[in-house]
Amino acid sequence: MSLNIGCKVVVESYQSLYQRAAERKGSIEALEKLLSKPRTNDELMAIDDSAWLEEFTRKIFQSGFYWSVVDAKWAGFQEVFWHFSIEKLLLMPPEMLERKASDPRIIRNFKKVKTIRDNCLMIHDIAQKHGSFSTFIANFPSEDIVQLWNELKIHGARLGGNTGAYALRAMGKDTFVLSRDIEGYCRACDVIDGGLHSKRSHLAIQAMFLQFQEQSGRSYQELSQLVAYSFGDNIVGWQN
């Protein structure tokens, strides 16, 4: 069943979704060039745990700030926080964190700076149980990815909403993300009718992506991009 934009219908087939996305992007070849794949489990496990803390922090600061401002300050963040070394940050006393939060080399937002310490502790605690935080992420089943989002929200600091999911995507964990195009698609298809970030909505959207995955064999990351390319504003070359 093809999607009737503006009408609430049953979720369409993967083939229908793919064909529409290809038509909107000009051709199958053009569409395929826009799709990207997640890292393998081995590649994820090779990531140093400090890189996760850095990406979580980057996404937390990007929320509410122009990304260009965050990017311009990022070398300062790396200097001030020892390149996000888990071992060094664990030894940092609270008063030192307060001093670092006022350093002009970074964006001086104490509430967000405090998440560095909190998320460092989360990563350390999980690493103690699983060998490394990267191993925990790599081995977490992608078919239940919204539960991983929830783990980050519950045990981390400011990693709810889209923040945790976008950090996972940036690091290469296979996940869909809830962009405005994907939300619009899910509402048009009557997949969700309540709040985007409710447990019910998350599970319904995950079930939709599982359906597409069963039909296509593609990763969540590719399918997330395909849904976005098939719906909403058609901007040539835009990647989700």
Rank of each mutant, 00 (worst) to 15 (best):
N4Y: 13
C7T: 10
S13M: 06
Q15I: 12
R20F: 13
A22H: 07
A22W: 05
S27W: 15
E29A: 10
A30V: 03
L31T: 14
K37T: 15
R39K: 15
E43N: 06
M45I: 14
I47D: 03
I47S: 02
D48Q: 06
S50D: 00
L53H: 00
R58Y: 15
F65R: 09
Y66M: 05
S68W: 04
K73N: 06
K73Y: 15
A75N: 04
K100R: 10
A101D: 03
S102V: 03
S102P: 01
P104M: 07
P104V: 11
K114R: 11
R117D: 03
I137H: 02
L148N: 05
G156I: 03
G160W: 10
T163H: 05
T163V: 15
D174I: 12
D174T: 11
V177W: 10
S179H: 10
R180G: 09
D181H: 15
Y185L: 10
C186L: 05
C186W: 13
R187C: 07
C189P: 04
H197G: 02
K199S: 14
A204E: 14
M208H: 02
Q211L: 12
Q211C: 09
Q215E: 15
Q215P: 11
G217V: 13
Y220S: 04
L226W: 08
A228T: 08
V236R: 15
N240V: 14
